[in-house]
Structure formats: C-alpha cells, structure tokens
C-alpha cells in the first residue's frame, strides 16, 4: 500500500504543568487513513498528548501540524481546527438538556451553519448506522453508558472531521457495554477513518491499530505494528506493561483472539 500523506503531525511536543514534564519531546506522524493506538500505564501522558492535539491543553514547546500547516504558532483559530479534529471523551459529555438529535446537530448547525433539515437527515442516517435511530428523541439520561458513547461518536462524526481522537472512550463503561462501542470504532476503522485512540483494551488495540505507540514517562518508548508490539516487545518497559494484563499463567488474555 502506498504511503498516504501525513495528516496530523506532532513535532517535539513538550508539555509542563509546572511540576515536572508531562510530555517530554514527543513526535508522531499520523498518515491519512491510519489508525494509531496509544497505550501506556496510567499517568504516562497519553491522554494529555491527545488533548494537546486539538488545543484543549496548551503545549510549552514543539509544533502541531495539520495537513502540513503549523497550527500551534501565532493566533490559532481553534474552533476551525477542531472541526477537522473530532474528539470523543471518556465521560461521553453529552449535553443533558438536549435530546440525542439536538446534541448531534448542534455542531453542524451552529458551527458550520449547515441546513438544519439536511443535517437532521444525515444525523438519522448515522444514528441508524450505530443502531440508535429509535433513541433520537431521547435525552441522555435515558440512555445507557454504551448508548451515550455511541451518540457521542456520531456527534463527532457529523462534523466530517479529517481525524478522530478517542480518549479512553470505554473506561467509564460497564464491561458488558464496552463491546458495542468498540464495534462502532472498528467499523469506522475499516471504512477508512483516520484515528488516534487512547485505550486500555489491549485486544481491541491489537485488532484496530495499524500501529501501536507505547508511551511511558511522557516519552514514546516504542512504535510498532500491533503484531510485533504484542508478541515481541523490544523494551523492558513495554514487556512489563504488557505483563500487567496477563492473569492466566499461559497468557490467555493476551493471545485469545476474540477480535
């Protein structure tokens, strides 16, 4: 497969909250159509990195480039950038005072100034795709966690972003709902979306990723294909990290192929 152009690029990102560096010189290229999964121990900086990519966190040094253009220098029009970089959060953060459909069309109507009727039709199509068309007039509090997260994904999709960021989107879900959300993301991956995913679901990571990036201590420690990363991690830190997911003595959890 010929290499696609670079869509989003981080160059030597440094992020500092004032008490030690959270991100220490991170560089990463995300090509069009590529699915990159960031893994690493809690507090390693992977979520922070994700939040830096759409300007929710400010970086102290380095550059972020979108479509080859630097977006972190001068006065960035973040609202414009964020329409191209969609994001889904761990805590769904649907707007509780709006129905599902209103949650979804708020962005396109108010931000992109698109026609409400046309957007509503599109929203219904997307809802159908994630199996929630019958919930379009429900309010978020009437939905289960998994349903909320699927709505949140649709809410990000409808802006037609060039890339989607997923920040531990299943971490707050009950175990039996994780699957329904991950299936949606898998489906998006197979239809060619560019995605940057932070997750603790290792089997999912292996199934969905084109490349696994292992971050520890604010640095990229390894970057490899899922196959290589999960079967032959190159560093001790990665091996130790992967070991924390193994319960059975034969490493059943790692090698099982539920995906």
């Amino acid at each position: 497969m010929a290499k696609q152009p670079v869509l989003l690029e981080a160059k030597n990102i440094i992020k500092d909250y004032g008490n030690g560096q959270v991100l220490n010189d991170i560089s990463l290229q995300i090509h069009k159509g590529e699915v990159i999964v960031l893994v690493g121990p809690s507090g390693c900086g992977k979520s922070t990195f994700l939040r830096c990519m759409n300007g929710l966190e400010q970086i102290q040094a380095g550059q972020i480039l979108l479509d080859g253009e630097v977006i972190t220098e001068g006065k960035t029009d973040w609202p414009k950038v964020r329409q191209k970089i969609g994001m889904v959060f761990q805590s769904y953060d649907l707007f509780p005072h709006m129905s599902v459909i209103d949650n979804i069309i708020l962005g396109p109507v108010k931000v992109q100034g698109r026609d409400k009727k046309e957007v509503t039709e599109e929203a219904e199509k997307l809802l159908d795709r994630v199996g929630l068309l019958d919930k379009k007039d429900a309010y978020p509090r009437q939905l289960s966690g998994g349903q909320k997260q699927r709505v949140a994904i649709v809410r990000a999709l409808i802006l037609k972003p060039e890339i989607l960021l997923f920040d531990e989107v299943t971490a707050a879900l009950d175990p039996e709902m994780v699957r329904e959300v991950l299936d949606v993301i898998l489906e998006l991956a197979s239809s060619g979306y560019t995605m940057l995913i932070v997750t603790h679901e290792m089997q999912f990571a292996r199934a969905v990723a084109d490349r696994i990036v292992f971050i520890d201590g604010g640095k990229i420690v390894e970057s490899d294909t899922p196959e290589a990363f999960f079967t032959q991690p190159k560093t001790d830190r990665a091996r130790r990290f992967l070991n924390t997911f193994i319960y059975a003595k034969d490493g059943e959890k790692l090698t099982s192929d539920s995906y």
Binding site: W78, P79, Q83, F95, G107, A156
Partner: peptide, 10 residues
C-alpha cells in the same frame, strides 16, 4: 461539558 463543546468547534 465545556470541553465537549470546544471539541465540536463551538
């Protein structure tokens, strides 16, 4: 809520 809205480009 604010972050989710920011992420939508509002």
């Amino acid at each position: 809520q604010e972050e989710a809205a920011l992420a939508l480009g509002l």
